[in-house]
């Protein structure tokens, strides 16, 4: 059996948190969110999470991976996602 040097664990880029690249953070207004999943469909990172808030299906960003591109905010049909400048705590 040849042990190829390039073998990697499946999906292991998840160990690397690209969220540190971000300048703007998406903030979802759950009252406005209609749960259409457009943000999830269009996210190049695949880092949008479905969750339930007050019995309603909504979507939120996994900030560990979000690079802050802002596609979700642009494509949200009800304007529920604002991009806010990241600031040091």
């Amino acid at each position: 059996m040849v042990n190829f040097a390039g073998i990697a664990e499946p999906g292991s880029t998840k160990n690397y948190k690209t969220g540190t690249w971000r300048t703007y953070r998406p903030v979802v207004d759950f009252d406005k969110c209609i749960g259409c999943a457009k943000c999830w469909e269009y996210c190049p990172e695949g880092c949008i999470i479905e969750l339930e808030v007050d019995g309603k299906e909504v979507y939120e960003t996994d900030l560990d991976y979000c690079k802050g591109c802002g596609i979700c905010s642009e494509e949200c049909p009800v304007g529920a996602i604002e991009m806010e400048l990241e600031e040091e705590d």
């Binding site: 999906g11 292991s12 880029t13 998840k14 160990n15 690397y16 948190k17 690209t18 690249w21 971000r22 269009y42 996210c43 190049p44 990172e45 695949g46 880092c47 996994d62 560990d64 991976y65 690079k67 802050g68 591109c69 802002g70 596609i71």
Partner: peptide
């Protein structure tokens, strides 16, 4: 096609592959 890839923010290719 998982998160943590190193494509630029807003990469069309990454979405295409996903």
């Amino acid at each position: 096609f998982e998160s943590g890839h190193r494509a630029c923010a807003g990469c069309g290719l990454a979405l295409g592959a996903r």
